[in-house]
């Protein structure tokens, strides 16, 4: 299952809730878009939380959103960057998708 988070982890608990559920095993992927991409900042609190689930969860981020925010050189290792076409591929590859509000 693909989980999409678009909220900054520093002003909203959505990412934390998503990780609480998604981090518990299963075949899951996490895609960060919009302000959600701040979550993959190296050495940040949110980055550490994301890193902690990366053993079981594949983590992706939407490159246009990362670049727009100037965060491309501060990205946590192990995160896969995707463009818009890659976003579409991820949606197709997974049996279902949840866009966390």
């Amino acid at each position: 299952m693909l989980h999409i988070v678009n909220k900054s982890p520093f002003e909203n608990t959505t990412l934390a809730s998503c990780l609480r559920v998604v981090g518990k095993g299963g075949d899951n992927a996490l895609l960060l878009i919009e302000d959600g991409v701040y979550a993959i900042t190296k050495n940040s609190d949110a980055g550490k939380a994301v890193h902690a689930v990366m053993g079981g969860v594949k983590v992706y981020a939407l490159m246009p959103d990362v670049e727009a925010r100037g965060m491309q050189d501060r990205v946590l290792e192990g995160v896969t960057m995707v463009d818009y076409a890659g976003f579409v591929d991820l949606v197709i590859e997974h049996n279902n998708v949840q866009s966390w509000l």
Binding site: V21, G26, N96, Q98, S99, W100
Partner: peptide, 17 residues
């Protein structure tokens, strides 16, 4: 539990938030 929730979500055809 969160773990049980994860299993249940994975089992759906459509998830709407």
């Amino acid at each position: 539990s969160s773990a049980e929730m994860q299993v249940l979500m994975n089992d759906q055809d459509v998830v709407i938030a």
